[in-house]
């Protein structure tokens, strides 16, 4: 079996996988990083979004072997110990999550948006979330959370 070496949340890992293993399987099944979820099989729901070399991607639509040599950031790598990342804190403060299943992908997408657009409008946030489906919140509080989170991130720079 091929062996893949990559950096996940700042730590290097080398994992033996099948060629058909997806990045999300490497994260969940081989590294035990189960915060990244799988909610669909057509690459639409976004529960699996992680950052690869700084950009948000669907880890269910990337082979583990394709991610060799990259730098991956998952939801587990976002907070500093007990201190939530500003986007995580904004989701909590604005009740941007209910069942929590889509949340890791939402937060990772939101952080990518905030990196690209420090002051996103409601319209821009709603468009950005085209690839993230939530069934619980009706998005209302997610949108509020992302706006607040982006502002907090901009303010802390």
């Amino acid at each position: 079996m091929p062996s893949v070496t990559l950096t996940v949340n700042g730590k290097q890992a080398t994992v033996e996988v099948e060629n058909r293993t997806l990045l999300v399987q490497l994260l969940r099944e081989h590294l035990g990083l189960t915060g990244t979820h799988v909610g669909c099989d057509t690459s639409q729901c976004g529960a699996c979004v992680v950052h690869v070399d700084g950009a948000s991607v669907k880890s269910c639509t990337l082979l583990a072997v394709q991610a060799a040599g990259t730098n991956v950031l998952t939801i587990e790598g976002l907070a500093k110990g007990d201190e939530l990342h500003p986007m995580q804190a904004a989701f909590r403060e604005n009740h941007g999550l209910q069942c929590g299943f889509c949340t890791p992908g939402m937060v990772m997408s939101a952080v990518d948006l905030a990196h690209r657009n420090a002051h996103p409008t409601e319209h821009e946030i709603r468009e950005w979330l085209e690839g993230n489906i939530c069934r619980c919140t009706g998005y209302h509080n997610i949108v509020k959370a992302i706006k607040a989170g982006a502002e907090a991130m901009a303010g802390s720079r």
């Binding site: 969940r28 979820h37 998952t74 939530l84 989701f91 999550l97």
Partner: peptide
Amino acid sequence: VRRKEDFRFLTGKGNYVDD
């Protein structure tokens, strides 16, 4: 009140069956 359950969900520490 802000939710007690949120910390684990926001940090990837939720415990769903497939986890």
